[in-house]
Amino acid sequence: MKGIEFWGDSLDVIRNLPEGARAAIGFQLDRLQRGLQPDDFKPMKTIGSGVEEMRVRDAGNAYRVIYFARVEDAVHVLHAFQKKTEKTSKQDLAVAAQRFKQLDAERRP
């Protein structure tokens, strides 16, 4: 089973979400660790190749976890947030992109 690497404040953000959202995200992260896909996700090609966004709904609210799981050693959680508008904010996309760039730089020899 893969480990999980949380980038930036993503773990703190998840820990501060409502209990139902935390439980749903935890379940989906477990699926990723086991090599399965989350129940609801989409590719985030604008951030990077292999980056995906997990979609979770709880009590009428939408939550997102942007991650990279295309490596054998770990699921890399780049960013987590509550989605409050139809479109993902430029700030949330920029945070995920910056963390993916850092991850990519660290993984290269």
Rank of each mutant, 00 (worst) to 15 (best):
K2M: 12
E5K: 15
F6M: 14
W7Y: 09
W7N: 08
W7F: 09
W7S: 05
D9W: 12
D9G: 01
L11K: 15
L11P: 07
L11W: 15
V13T: 09
I14S: 11
I14W: 13
N16A: 15
L17S: 07
P18M: 08
P18C: 03
E19F: 15
G20L: 13
A21F: 04
R22W: 08
A23G: 10
A24E: 11
A24S: 11
I25D: 02
I25C: 01
I25R: 00
F27I: 06
L32K: 04
Q33W: 02
Q33H: 02
R34H: 08
R34S: 02
G35D: 13
L36C: 10
L36A: 03
Q37E: 14
P38L: 05
P38G: 00
D39V: 01
D39A: 03
D39R: 11
D39Q: 07
D40I: 05
F41C: 01
K42G: 06
K42V: 07
K42E: 13
K45Y: 06
K45A: 11
K45F: 10
T46R: 15
T46C: 09
I47N: 10
I47P: 06
I47C: 11
G48W: 02
S49A: 03
S49C: 06
G50R: 04
E52D: 10
E53L: 09
E53Q: 13
M54N: 09
M54Q: 14
M54R: 09
V56D: 01
V56K: 00
R57G: 03
R57C: 07
R57W: 12
A59S: 11
A59L: 12
A59F: 11
G60Q: 07
G60F: 07
N61H: 11
Y63E: 06
R64I: 01
V65L: 05
V65S: 04
Y67L: 10
Y67R: 02
Y67A: 03
F68I: 13
F68E: 12
F68M: 05
F68R: 08
F68K: 09
A69S: 11
A69R: 04
A69N: 03
A69G: 02
R70Q: 09
R70H: 06
V71F: 12
V71H: 07
A74W: 04
V75W: 14
V75R: 07
V75P: 05
V75H: 11
H76C: 04
H76W: 09
V77H: 07
L78E: 14
H79T: 03
A80D: 05
A80E: 04
Q82Y: 04
Q82T: 11
K83A: 06
K83M: 06
K84M: 14
K84L: 14
T85W: 05
E86K: 15
E86N: 12
K87E: 13
T88L: 12
T88G: 03
S89R: 08
K90G: 13
K90M: 10
K90L: 15
Q91M: 12
L93A: 02
L93D: 08
A94I: 02
V95H: 00
A97W: 08
Q98Y: 09
R99I: 11
F100L: 12
F100H: 06
K101F: 07
Q102P: 00
Q102L: 14
A105T: 01
E106F: 01
R107Q: 15
R107H: 14
R108D: 10
P109E: 08
P109F: 10
